[in-house]
Design a protein around this nucleic acid. Structure first.
Lengths: 161, 161
DNA sequence: TTTATATCGTACCGTTTCGGTTCCGTATCG
DNA sequence: CGATACGGAACCGAAACGGTACGATATAAA
């Protein structure tokens, strides 16, 4: 469905590092591993994925390394997650498998609305860019997409989502 | 971090079923399993969790069953996820463990911003209620929290988040 | 041209947790 | 009292997550 693993966290940390030092100098996997204190093999793996996903541009050879493929404020958190987590299936009904059971009306008549949740999350995350992550944001100076999505009613469940 | 497993999906399906038939009649686990075509043991497990989380009220005995603890429009998707997934750790730095490495400035100076993402998602999901899930919503008739979080810029990555 | 550097691709593996099950205890109504 | 239905705990196979290893390829400098 929708998940956000530790690997994705690491990926955002790495990309944030690029955005914070947004010179046009290429950063190597080893350098990033040292600065972020993340294991080198994992960093390498993530950089490959991000490069293949079009978020990073790679340069091989002696003076090689990675740079952002475009300005940080044009890279949304949504795009990063989509790249690292792969295409997330909306529901299992929509994956193409022939589930004849889904014809049962009382079952699938409520299921498609699940997509509303995915759309909501994606919409909110497309309002956040890498540039927003480089500097600590106060509650009053956040991107429009975030503040407008703030709740009006008081949450009564556990506060930690 | 943040995840949305199949079990949570099932839980929302079950709760949606309650909201759609919002009579005050108690629904049993077996009845819900039949109508949603979900395995009975799983349904029972989920109902227990939702009951313990305060979203459902339970009645034991012969005429027992479950009912919503409050009106569907007062139950947010955010609360459901928080109940079923448990308290999601914001970052591993904030779990209380003594990670002396986190004092390294170039490391943790970017990490706390990760919470922005969680807040964004939670904020968006607190704008969605169970009542919103019972009827198919057109793009023009969605809750305010959703439409206002729609992207302005075009997503360029994979469209499926 | 050679050599060192660093990305690229693939395949592999231990551990965790996810999804689902089973069993028994407890409470309620007829 | 006994049939029904929730409550809680323990258990298990399978899948993924997180991390590793190794060789191939491309680039720049010597």
């Amino acid at each position: 469905m929708f998940r956000m693993t530790k690997l994705t966290d690491y990926g955002i940390v790495l990309l944030t590092h690029f955005a914070a030092h947004d010179d046009q100098v290429a950063h190597t996997a080893r350098e990033l591993a040292l600065e972020t204190r993340l294991p080198l093999p994992t960093v390498g793996k993530l950089l490959k994925q991000l490069s293949r996903g079009g978020l990073l541009a790679s340069q091989r050879g002696t003076k090689g390394g990675y740079i952002l493929s475009r300005p940080a404020r044009e890279i949304t958190i949504s795009a990063i997650i989509a790249t690292l987590e792969g295409p997330v299936a909306i529901t299992e009904c929509n994956t193409g498998e022939s589930h004849s059971r889904c014809e049962h009306e009382s079952f699938c008549s409520v299921r498609p609305n699940w997509q509303i949740i995915n759309d909501t999350i994606r919409g909110a995350l497309e309002g956040l860019t890498l540039a927003d992550m480089t500097r600590p944001l106060t509650r009053s100076a956040r991107p429009a997409a975030f503040s407008s999505a703030l709740p009006v009613r008081a949450p009564e469940g556990r506060s930690a989502l």
